[in-house]
């Protein structure tokens, strides 16, 4: 098929007006005095909207943003993950790789029975879908707000258990909905159940 090209008029063939037309959006933002939500408070001292000085300056990540998945701890700094491997199963790009503990269970405290021996997330594979967070029965994995995952080689970007736990830390969001009426009872995983079992009259 032959495409008929429209013949340009004399004015169009000047090109300058078209270029200026294209700059219109840029220039409008350049001279805009309105504040943008993205720059948030960072910009309060500026009257004009200027280019953000990333990475020295960072934009406030909105709530509900799905960043990198990390393992979170409970309020006593205990590992919450029990190596159920549901996240590994559900992860669409197979970014998660868990090594189960084997017979020993690897548990590090009273009342706990099972913990992962290894827990790797390949951040190059992760697509930040949040399925792992959704499926986790122990609320042990959360997509936090990290979005700039960089490294010098591929191995570096496979985060292991220690790294995921330290990056996840004790994220408040991880147990926010366990707090009622301002009273932070905390989840203190297994503590309640262990106590309950201890209080029970011995059955003989």
């Amino acid at each position: 098929m032959k495409v008929e090209r429209a013949k340009l008029t004399w004015f169009e063939r000047l090109y300058i007006p078209s270029i200026l037309n294209g700059f219109k959006v840029t220039l409008r933002h350049f001279f805009s005095w309105k504040r943008s939500k993205v720059y948030g408070d960072k910009q309060s001292s500026y009257s004009a909207k200027l280019t953000m000085q990333y990475p020295e300056e960072k934009w406030p990540v909105p709530d509900g943003y799905r960043g990198a998945p990390y393992l979170v701890k409970d309020e006593d700094a205990n590992t919450k993950c029990v190596s159920c491997q549901l996240c590994e199963f559900v992860c669409p790009p197979k970014a998660i790789r868990i090594t189960p503990p084997g017979q020993s269970g690897e548990a590090d405290r009273e009342g706990a029975e099972k913990m992962p021996k290894e827990f790797d997330i390949n951040m190059l594979r992760c697509i930040y879908c949040g399925f792992c967070q959704e499926v986790c029965p122990e609320e042990a994995i959360y997509l936090l707000k990290d979005y700039a995952i960089t490294g010098e080689n591929r191995e570096e970007l496979i985060f292991n258990k220690e790294k995921l736990l330290s990056l996840g830390g004790e994220d408040k969001r991880a147990y926010a909905h366990h707090t009622q009426d301002g009273v932070t009872e905390g989840i203190k995983k297994w503590e309640k159940k262990t106590q309950e079992a201890k209080d029970q009259p011995a059955f003989h």
């Binding site: 491997q85 199963f89 189960p100 503990p101 084997g102 017979q103 020993s104 269970g105 099972k114």
Partner: peptide, 12 residues
């Protein structure tokens, strides 16, 4: 089974 205990989830 002690041998299979915490080795792998069965759905894999």
């Amino acid at each position: 089974s002690d041998d299979f205990r915490f080795q792998m989830r069965v759905w894999f």
